[in-house]
Simulated assay, not measured.
Amino acid sequence: MEQGAATSVLLAASPSVAGVGGRSYEDCAEAKPVTERAADTVGGVAPYALDRENAARLWAVSEALVG
């Protein structure tokens, strides 16, 4: 069970990622961008999830929806 929280603990406590933001992590490492996945693969991060313009647009829409 301890391994389930390893990445979260790393990101919360490690000085090696201090000040790092806007990235996705898995298995205690930065997730690699993937454009296609095999049916039995779940790792990686889609490029659109790393797009700053998408993030800004989502934030603006979210603010408008909640007031």
Rank of each mutant, 00 (worst) to 15 (best):
S16R: 13
E2P: 08
E36H: 05
D40A: 06
G44Q: 01
R57V: 14
E30M: 09
A39V: 12
S16F: 10
V66P: 00
E2D: 13
N54V: 02
R23C: 10
L50K: 04
S14Q: 05
A39S: 10
R23I: 05
R57L: 14
A5S: 08
V34Q: 04
P33R: 07
S8Y: 12
L58M: 15
L11E: 03
E63T: 11
R37W: 15
V17K: 04
V9Q: 03
S62R: 15
S14T: 02
A55G: 03
V9N: 07
V34Y: 06
E53Y: 01
N54Q: 08
V17M: 08
K32P: 07
V42H: 08
E53N: 06
E63F: 02
S24A: 10
S16C: 10
N54S: 08
P15H: 08
A46P: 02
G22Q: 08
Y25V: 03
A31W: 03
S24Q: 04
V61L: 03
N54L: 07
L65H: 04
S62T: 14
A56Q: 11
R37F: 02
R52P: 13
T35Q: 08
G4Q: 15
W59I: 11
A13M: 10
E63M: 11
D27M: 06
A13K: 14
E63H: 09
L65P: 00
G19I: 03
R52A: 12
L58Y: 04
S16K: 12
A29M: 12
S16M: 11
Y25N: 01
D27L: 12
A64G: 11
V61F: 04
L65Y: 06
Y25G: 08
G43I: 01
G43E: 13
A13Q: 12
V42P: 00
T41S: 10
G21P: 00
A39G: 13
N54K: 05
C28H: 04
K32F: 06
G67D: 13
E2R: 14
A5R: 14
V61P: 00
G19W: 09
W59F: 13
V20N: 04
G4N: 13
G22S: 09
Q3N: 10
E30K: 03
E30C: 05
E53V: 10
A38V: 00
A31C: 00
P33G: 03
S8E: 15
T7E: 01
V9D: 07
P15Q: 11
A56S: 15
K32E: 15
A60T: 01
V61Q: 00
A5K: 10
E63I: 12
S8K: 12
L11N: 05
G21L: 09
E30H: 04
A39E: 14
A60N: 04
D40H: 11
K32S: 13
A12F: 07
E30F: 05
R57T: 13
L50W: 07
G44F: 02
V61M: 04
W59A: 15
L58T: 10
E36R: 14
G21Q: 12
S62G: 15
G67T: 11
G44C: 03
A64Y: 14
L65I: 09
A49W: 01
G43H: 12
A60G: 00
G4H: 14
L65F: 04
R52N: 01
S14I: 06
G67C: 10
R52C: 04
A5N: 09
A5W: 07
L58I: 14
A31R: 02
G22F: 09
K32L: 14
V45Q: 09
